[in-house]
Deep mutational scan, measured.
Amino acid sequence: TIDEIIKALEQAVKDNKPIQVGNYTVTSADEAEKLAKKLKKEY
Rank of each mutant, 00 (worst) to 15 (best):
E33H: 09
K38I: 09
G22M: 07
E4D: 12
K37D: 11
Q20P: 02
A32D: 00
Q20N: 10
N16G: 15
A8L: 13
L39S: 00
I5C: 07
A12H: 04
L9T: 00
D3N: 09
L35E: 01
V13M: 14
D30Q: 12
Y24R: 05
N16D: 06
K41P: 02
V26H: 01
D15Q: 08
G22C: 15
A12F: 15
T27S: 14
D15T: 09
G22R: 03
K37M: 14
K14M: 11
E42Q: 14
I2S: 03
I2P: 04
K17T: 10
L35D: 00
A36C: 13
N16L: 06
D3M: 14
K41D: 11
T27G: 10
I6C: 07
E42I: 15
V21F: 11
D3Y: 15
Y24M: 08
I5L: 10
A12P: 01
Q20D: 05
A36M: 15
K14N: 06
L9I: 07
V21A: 03
T25Y: 15
E31K: 01
Y43E: 05
K17P: 02
A36H: 04
K41T: 12
E4L: 10
L9E: 02
K41Y: 10
Q20W: 06
G22Q: 04
I6L: 12
I5E: 02
V13Q: 06
E4G: 05
I6G: 00
A8F: 06
K40M: 13
P18K: 05
A12W: 15
I2D: 02
K17M: 14
K34Y: 12
L39E: 00
K38M: 13
K40E: 04
T25C: 15
L35M: 05
I5D: 00
K7P: 01
A29D: 04
T1V: 06
G22E: 05
P18Q: 05
T25M: 12
I6H: 01
K41M: 13
E42M: 15
K41Q: 13
Q20I: 11
D3T: 09
Q11I: 05
V26N: 01
K40A: 10
Q20L: 07
Y43R: 12
A36Y: 15
P18Y: 05
I6W: 04
K40F: 10
D15I: 05
P18A: 09
N16P: 03
G22F: 12
K38W: 15
T1G: 08
D15G: 06
T25S: 10
A29C: 09
K37V: 09
K41H: 12
Q20R: 14
I19E: 01
